[in-house]
Design a protein around this nucleic acid. Structure first.
Length: 110
DNA sequence: AGATTGACGACGC
DNA sequence: TGCGTCGCCAATC
């Protein structure tokens, strides 16, 4: 239960705005929302995507290091989806992360 | 109600 | 450049 449904909503909206074959970080999304310090909350919100009816490409959201953190089982799923989109993964890490990194703040433009 | 953890990030050394 | 520590906000124990 989040006290800020809007925050969660925005997170999902941005996640769906991520171009295919691109990835972004939790901090980038939080920052785009003006809550750069809520990076952790973004990740937590993603865990609730399970309750979302609409498909959210949460697999395109990784940490600032480009690593797929979380439960190993979830990591495997995300990795598969990313590779399917053309994103190369190595050791649970996005290859060329800096190259395919997508900054939501440039698209959302608060 | 208080303490701890967590899909993170930034800073310091 | 890499490892260690602190800080944030909310949820969970």
């Amino acid at each position: 239960m989040q006290n800020d449904p809007d925050f969660n909503k925005l997170v999902f909206a941005i996640a769906r705005s991520i171009p295919k074959g691109r990835v972004t970080s939790y901090g980038a999304i939080a920052k785009a929302l003006g809550k750069g310090n809520l990076s952790r909350m973004v990740g937590r919100a993603m865990g609730l995507v399970n309750e979302e009816k609409k498909p959210v490409p949460f697999q395109r959201v990784v940490n600032s290091q480009g690593y797929l953190t979380g439960d190993p089982r979830h990591i495997a799923v995300r990795r598969k989806l990313l590779e399917k989109e053309g994103v190369e993964i190595k050791n649970d890490k996005v290859v060329n992360f800096r190259n395919i990194f997508w900054d939501p703040s440039e698209e959302i433009d608060l």
